[in-house]
Structure formats: C-alpha cells, structure tokens
Amino acid sequence: MLILLACLQAALALLAAPLVSGSARWMRAKFQTRKGPPILQDYYDIIKLFKRQDLHTRDSSFIHKLMPALFFGTMMLIFMGVPVITRFSPVTVLADVILLLYLLVLPRFFFALAAIDSGSSYAGVGGIRELLLGVLVEPAMMLALFVTILATGSTNMGEMGMAIGSFATETPVAVALAGVAFACACYIELGKLPFDLAEAEQELQDGPLSEYSGPSLALVKMSMSMKQIIVLSWFVAIFVPFGSALELSLPALALGLGVYLLKMAGLFFVCTIIENVVARVRLSLLGHQTWAVVGIAAMALVLSILGV
C-alpha cells in the first residue's frame, strides 16, 4: 500500500511538472499583458521535443548523455520519500532530511559537469553559478532544519511534520522563524527570478542547458519543474503539514490530496507573483540575500537555545 502511494506520488510529480512551468509562463504573460501561451503549452513542447533528434556536442562524453536521465531519476526517487498526501512518509528510509539535502547534490553535481562537458563556455559559466547557489543556500537550509530538528527531536520529515502539525514542538517561536528562513532558502533553491542566475537568458542564453536538445532537453526541463515541486513539497511537509492524511483511509487520502494541491497552488501563485515583480539579482550581490537568510536562521537558533 505504501509502495503504491510512493509510486503514485512520483507519477503525480511527473504529470504535474509541465503544468507547473506552463502555468508560470501563462501568468508571466498575463503580468506583462500579453496573450501568452496556453497553460498546457509545456505539455505540447515536451511531446514535440521527445520526437526530435538528440544532439550532443562533439567534445561531450557519456556525462552529457547521462545527466538528463540521472536528474530525472533522482527527482523521482526524492519524491517517493516526501510526505505529500499523508503526514508520514510513504518510504520512511527516504525521508531523512540530511539524505534529501545530499540527494539534491547528485543531480547538481552532474548538472554542472554536463555543462562543462558540452565544451560550450556559456554553459559552463551557468553550471558553476548553479553550484555556487548551492553553496550559499545550504548553510541556511541546514541551520533552519537544525532548529526544527532540535524542536521536534527527529530528522525524519514525516515525524517533523507530525510534531509541528500537532503543535507539539518545544520552541514554537524558534520553529516559526526557522520556517521563514527555510521558506526563503527554498525560494532561492527554486531558481526563479531574482535568483535564476544559472539560466539568465540575456547573458547566458539558457545557461547550462544551451547545448541540450530534443528528448534530453525535454527530460531536463521536466526534472527542473519536478525539483521545484519537490522543494515546495518539502517545505509544506515539514512546516505546513496541516490537513494531510493521518491514516490510510480513502476519504482521508482524498482530503489530503485536495489540501496538498491547494497548498501547492497557493505557494506557486505567490512564488510567481514574486518572480514577476522583481529584477534579477546581480551575481556579485547574491551573497547579501543568502547571508541574510542565514542570519534569520541563526536568530531562530538563538531563540531555540533560549527555549522560546
């Protein structure tokens, strides 16, 4: 039953991925008072891309060909462990927050390598920026998670959500503040404006993906949307678990799914609004934002040690 649920979750992420990117495009067009593409445009794009020829550059190696599948596979794997419809995780041994943080490193590692592998220096620059962003975001994420772990006594996402969902944490103020820091870190991790440095179009022309085409490009695009879903689901599972199913009965699951979809739609809506009202941050100033987030998380830690 739980295995089924895990596979269902992964399938959900897979099917919803183009919708996430498509609706973001649609909303962006509305903000700019353009007619814009239909919401389902990204489905059409991906289907079309899958029919195209797969091109790789002359100098590229197996890494360039492996990366899209690896990115895709890792995202599916991660999504199997995140509590989505239920409060607990379908696969407990995949729901450890440290494991998740490090599982995100695997595609990032290959993402940057593939960019360098393509032999195009523009792609390479984008790849390095992607890694840098990781370096700058991880301390904030880790610190925010640490405060939450201290308050909930567990490193398992499901159990952390349980504790927060039943208001059973020892230091509610600290956890709330950690939640804010974590939300900021998640937003940076989404790779949306103002933090879309890796894909900054004007400078780098689609960044690390500039040498991808056809089915490979389709896979990477889907995986990137899946990553956005994962990052937000992660935040939801730990800090806003309210409404998710506590048992494996059909009505509870249906309600859980409905609430989850609502929460995600709301979050994506907010994210898209933010994305459309800000300008891209200059790379050299990125440190300001990320260290401010670390500052918030550090504040949460101080509160947590003080016991509030």
């Binding site: 895709f72 890792t74 599916m76 199997m80 398992n156």
Partner: peptide
Amino acid sequence: VGGAISTPLVAVLIVALVALPF
C-alpha cells in the same frame, strides 16, 4: 534519535529510475 536511511535502497532505486527514461 531514530533517524534511518538505506543506502542500498537508494542505490537500487537510482539505477532503476535512471534506466527508466533510457
């Protein structure tokens, strides 16, 4: 603390899920 992970499971799933698109 009770945290648990399974590296063999991760390995098997990654291989399987990466093979899937291929």
